[in-house]
Design a protein around this nucleic acid. Structure first.
Lengths: 206, 206
DNA sequence: GCCACGATGTTGTCGTTGACAACTCTGTTG
DNA sequence: CAACAGAGTTGTCAACGACAACATCGTGGC
């Protein structure tokens, strides 16, 4: 498995760092974080057990790199879900549903990765790059909520607090799915309901 | 650390299983799940490295036992938060706030344990006892939501679905706190807001 | 042209861990 | 009081992460 394109084994791999990350991500997705060993992915990639050390000083560094890449991809997924940004013509609810779908979809497709992302981002001593990637990933939800406030769809107040209060439902749904508390099959029905009730709750008092 | 009450070392420990669980829980709370090793807790408890095997066939069995005990305690915490059950005289919102506080409080006090609980409960092949403990733990939220429906505070419909949609916000808030996305300091202000908006969202259409 | 040096991989080793086997201690039961 | 079963012990193995010392490659300065 994951035998790299069988170039006849040059001494220098060419792009070992990337190959390691790719294989690590596969292992993560297939067998979970506990099954991820540096020696294992080194074997899979066809390289000696100490080779990864040149690219990742320790295992944590590789996990951080995985998490950082994950946040960048999550950010792109959310940006795509947000589509046109403030110019998006759809009504607020639909835009939030799209964003929530993007988020929960990512969570379902990359369950183990998402867990790793969150357990490593705010670990004391996380690299600035990782923390920054995590911050950027969530720009779309904040922007959408701010737009919702401007348009009068969302109660006024500190954007950070309102977004957090609102996003908790989406994050919670994703977490519950990944924990097995919610069946993936139920999502198409449940997600719009969660978002709808969320929007009702966020509406300014009439 | 955790030198058991210095009985002069009998050959038979007396209640090794309990001692191991206690020490394991301390390690979990202090240093996280990754720092938890069977040999380590055996050392701490003053017993040989293979002794735990008599009580837990493998590491997973100990983790399962920890999770199961955690669910029982979470269940008690939620039951306490729900107080009088259907006879509780407080208005629906206040009862839900109390329940949410109990949940988030547990999550904050036992962050690592809660994570372990969720990552182990629905793992394929989890013991029936563990799954059952997990199910029982959440009886109070379901009961409260059902009561809310009877009283007309909550929109009608499948209790399971409505509860899930509603509880997602609470679970998400807890998850965000444990992930570091939300500062614990902000909770006293944020939690009632989340619950309030949740209740607004769950109200039957007027 | 070439060679010296730095980047990249390799082999070898250490301490720790989880799992397992074989042995020993102990107190209860018949 | 002897046998037995439950509870703990020592010993061992393979895998892992970390580290050190060594090997190989390719590129830039001369």
């Amino acid at each position: 498995m994951a035998t790299s394109t069988e170039t006849p084994r040059r001494y220098h791999h060419g792009d070992l760092r990337t190959a390691l990350l790719r294989r690590a991500e596969d292992v993560l997705a297939e067998d979970g974080a506990d099954a991820l060993s540096l020696r294992g992915i080194a074997r899979d990639v066809g390289v000696s057990h100490a080779a990864p050390r040149r690219h990742f000083p320790d295992k944590q560094a590789l996990l951080d790199a995985l998490a950082e890449e994950g946040f960048r991809r999550l950010g792109r997924a959310l940006d795509d879900g947000a589509a046109g940004g403030d110019a998006d013509p759809r009504p607020f609810v639909d835009r939030l549903v799209a964003l929530a779908e993007a988020y929960v979809g990512f969570a379902v497709r990359h369950a183990a990765l998402l867990e790793l992302m969150f357990t490593n981002k705010y670990r004391p001593g996380a690299s600035p790059a990782l923390v920054d990637a995590g911050r950027r990933a969530f720009e779309a939800p904040f922007a959408l909520m701010a737009a919702g406030q401007s348009a009068g769809d969302v109660v006024a107040g500190d954007v950070e607090r309102v977004t957090t209060a609102g996003w908790a439902g989406v994050h919670g749904l994703a977490a519950m799915v990944n924990a097995g508390l919610v069946d993936v099959e139920a999502l198409p029905e449940l997600l719009p309901e969660v978002v709808e009730r969320l929007v009702l709750g966020l509406r300014p008092r009439a």
